[in-house]
Simulated assay, not measured.
Amino acid sequence: MTTAQDLAIVALGATPDRSVEQGELSLALAGAEVLDLIGAKALAVEDDRIVPGAQVPTGDRLLDEAVAALVREEPYESVEEWLWRRGRGLSSAYVDDLERVGVTERPRGRRTGLRAGRTEPVDGAAGRRAEERWAAGEPVLAALAAAAGIGAEQPDEDAPELAGDAVTSVLAAVGDAVQELQGVRQRRVVEDAAFDNIWRGF
């Protein structure tokens, strides 16, 4: 299992009173993929740019898709650009892939998005691994989950497990992208309210 898969499993297991927005989760999953691919030596992050390595199979379908999607011409792509491009609809892709490989399943007759028609774990080993990382407060998973709106607080960025400029850079980019998304969403709410008021004569 990958960090991205673990994050998706944690999101699916979030309590009903803590909703997970697909946009924030998609950005966090795109960041998790970068970190997974750093670990697989499929890319490096240099000066906030994603520098691709050899295009070798990772053993995971979605990570292989991510490797194939890397920009391989200089000046390469920034982490932020990657998050927005790769993140589009990524939460749904992970939910579907976890079901496809038999890690989760949906109740019969209910096929919807992330929260409604909630998926249920099937593969106990995969689910336990994600739960163990989550329960242990593993810093990278905790940081990504917090960016997606799961968990109360961001972990301490000075923790030894987060040492390394590449990891710090990716997590910071995820946090910035999530804040930007939330800002855009809030502006739309205000603009829609103002438009409604105009039509009501206010």
Rank of each mutant, 00 (worst) to 15 (best):
G87C: 08
P107V: 04
E24N: 13
G31L: 05
R115I: 07
D123W: 05
A147R: 07
A136K: 06
R49H: 05
A40G: 12
A142C: 03
R128G: 13
L37S: 03
G31K: 00
E73I: 13
D165L: 12
A116C: 00
G39L: 05
V79M: 00
I9Y: 10
R133L: 15
E65M: 08
E120C: 10
L25H: 13
V51T: 15
A166S: 06
A173F: 03
A4L: 09
E81N: 13
R72P: 10
E65F: 08
R61E: 06
G201V: 11
V170P: 03
D64C: 08
A125H: 10
A125I: 10
S26M: 03
E46Q: 11
R128L: 09
E120H: 09
L181Y: 07
R129M: 03
T104V: 15
L162R: 14
W82M: 11
R108Y: 00
D47H: 15
G113E: 06
L29G: 02
R108C: 00
E81T: 14
N197V: 11
V79K: 07
V178A: 00
G89C: 02
S26E: 02
A30F: 02
D165H: 12
G117V: 01
A130T: 03
P16Y: 11
G127M: 13
R200V: 10
E105M: 05
E131K: 14
T58G: 13
V140W: 02
L70W: 13
S92T: 10
A11N: 00
L162K: 11
E132K: 10
R108L: 04
P139E: 09
T104H: 04
D123T: 00
V184I: 15
G13M: 07
A166M: 06
L162Q: 07
E99H: 02
E105V: 14
E153Y: 14
L83E: 04
G109N: 07
R100K: 08
A194W: 10
A172L: 14
A148D: 08
P155K: 11
V190R: 15
K41H: 14
A66N: 00
L62G: 05
